[in-house]
């Protein structure tokens, strides 16, 4: 095990507006030694008067690419409104990491992947599908968003380089999208390919707490071995 690097200065070197409420932020981090797909970093912001706030964000870039986070604004948030609406090239912040050895994907295992994402839970999935693609690992993505204009990485998901994707919209009907929350039978069907159960399928689920709780329960109820399931929950707003 390698100690996690301490706080390091970082500079914002690029931002990309993903949706009206989500932003990707590319960072230049001193002595960045790379990361593993699925890992996160801690980000620390410091106000003029010395006040600091720290949050964790999944990396949305693949290993070998510059570290990038993708953040959705929480209206009552303290850090996300800055990162989504104010952050711009040249701004300075601090980061720790990369961190995490559980919700990760590394080359070597050629098992096919099923990625199940809710909202900005798509961020670490992007790191995983971009990492897996050069190895020829089959990747399926099922992604739940509220509305079509809240779909993050929409262009990449439509491109031939993206994973095999189904997007479910929970708040509106639109052409090219499934409507309604992801149902148990739909999740169960994703465990098979051509009607045949895929015994080695590795499943990653990331999103808001309730989304992950439901999807993980439905997948294990459908017979998925718990050892083949990796989950990451985020966000405040879970059960009180």
């Amino acid at each position: 095990m390698r100690p996690v690097h301490g706080w390091r200065p970082a500079t914002i070197v690029g931002t990309a507006r993903e949706t009206a409420s989500a932003n990707s932020i590319r960072l230049a981090v001193a002595d960045w030694a790379g990361h593993v797909a699925g890992q996160h970093i801690d980000v620390r912001l410091t106000a003029d008067d010395g006040y600091q706030a720290t949050r964790s964000f999944s990396l949305s870039s693949a290993p070998g690419e510059a570290p990038q986070i993708t953040v959705e604004r929480l209206d009552d948030g303290e850090v996300s409104p800055y990162l989504v609406d104010i952050a711009t090239d040249g701004d300075a912040l601090e980061v720790r990491g990369p961190v995490g050895g559980y919700f990760v994907w590394q080359p070597g295992d050629d098992a096919p992947l099923l990625l199940v994402a809710g909202g900005s839970g798509i961020a670490p999935m992007r790191a995983i599908w971009r990492a897996a693609r050069p190895h020829g690992t089959p990747v399926r993505l099922v992604y739940s968003a509220r509305t079509a204009d809240r779909v993050i990485f929409a262009d990449e998901l439509r491109s031939p380089d993206g994973p095999e994707t189904t997007v479910h919209l929970t708040r509106e009907r639109a052409a090219g999208f499934e409507y309604g929350r992801l149902r148990a039978d739909q999740l169960s069907a994703l465990l098979s390919s051509g009607g045949v159960r895929e015994p080695r399928l590795l499943v990653y689920v990331c999103g808001p707490t309730a989304f992950v709780e439901d999807a993980a329960r439905e997948l294990t109820d459908a017979g998925l071995d718990a050892d083949l399931l990796r989950t990451e929950r985020f966000g405040v707003g879970g059960p009180k």
């Binding site: 620390r44 720290t54 303290e78 997948l219 989950t231 929950r233 707003g237 059960p239 009180k240």
Partner: peptide, 22 residues
């Protein structure tokens, strides 16, 4: 700040963090 350990923020929610399912 001051009310909580360094690097923490206060929430009134009770987020769920579990490796795997409930």
């Amino acid at each position: 700040e001051g009310a909580v350990p360094p690097g923490q923020y206060v929430t009134s929610d009770f987020p769920v963090l579990t490796a795997g399912g409930t």
